[in-house]
Amino acid sequence: MTSPTRPPAVLYDIRYSRFTGQLRPRVYAVLALARSSALGALGVRRSTGAKIWPFLLVVVAYAPAVVAVGIPLLVPDNDEFTEPLDFVSYYELLALIATPLLAYVATTIPSLLTRDRRDRVLTLYFSTALSAWEYVLGKVIAALLLILLVTLGPLLVLLIGGALVSDSPIDYVGDHAADLPKVVLAGVLLALFHAGWGLAIGSLTPRRVFAVGGYLGVMLVASTLGGAVASISNSDAFLAFVLPIVPIDMTASFLDTPEGNVTAPQGLLWAVWLVVVLGAAAVLWRRYRGGRES
């Protein structure tokens, strides 16, 4: 039985009508672009095949942290591992995910820009209220979110998981409260470094394969040469050219590191990091300054 004041069914007129609502400020457009780009890079609302590789790498990146959190639960009476950080430190966790991070960034970040250039979508974007700089900002936010997912995310799993599996979570949080800004800083350092380089390479070509090759090629060639020269010359300074571990070694200045850990001098590491990040910013500025469509 239907209510006498309410019709049993409503017919909606779905024919075209003029929009009379209020348009939102452009910052929402930037955030919408970032959200759509990040989800697209993960394969969300795309084919199943597009989801497999990025999500597989996300799982690989989280695996060490999840295992570390799980050990105290599975082996509660183990004196050697009373908390996840006994199993793997933040620094060691970052070192463990360095390789899957490279594959993940190569898979997701350059394509944030190459796909738009391949499909020539920039004409559409720039005909909206979005400016070229807002477009780049949206893509940078998307890239940072994507990388933070696999850098900051596992670190937070380790931190929060440690509290959850601890016998006294409140004491644990009190003891490790200072860890939060450190892990956030570590995640941001990695995210800026890889996002910058990945986007810079992606902005230079519409072909994804070239962008991925460029990103991995420079990273691996520099690493090989830097490692070889460091070994031959017996100078740690050349480790600053092993690009994938540059932002990770930078965290050695504020995260606990294993005994005997060798890194390049911190000043040199920061210099290389700055060169990469600022260089990437310069490439993006040059590429998009005129709002060119292709």
Binding site: G21, L23, R26, A29, G40, R45, T128, L130
Partner: peptide
Amino acid sequence: EMSAQDMCVHIAQLRGLN
């Protein structure tokens, strides 16, 4: 790689619609 529906929703949001 987008559907027409997703593309239109996306462009509408870029143009300021919620």
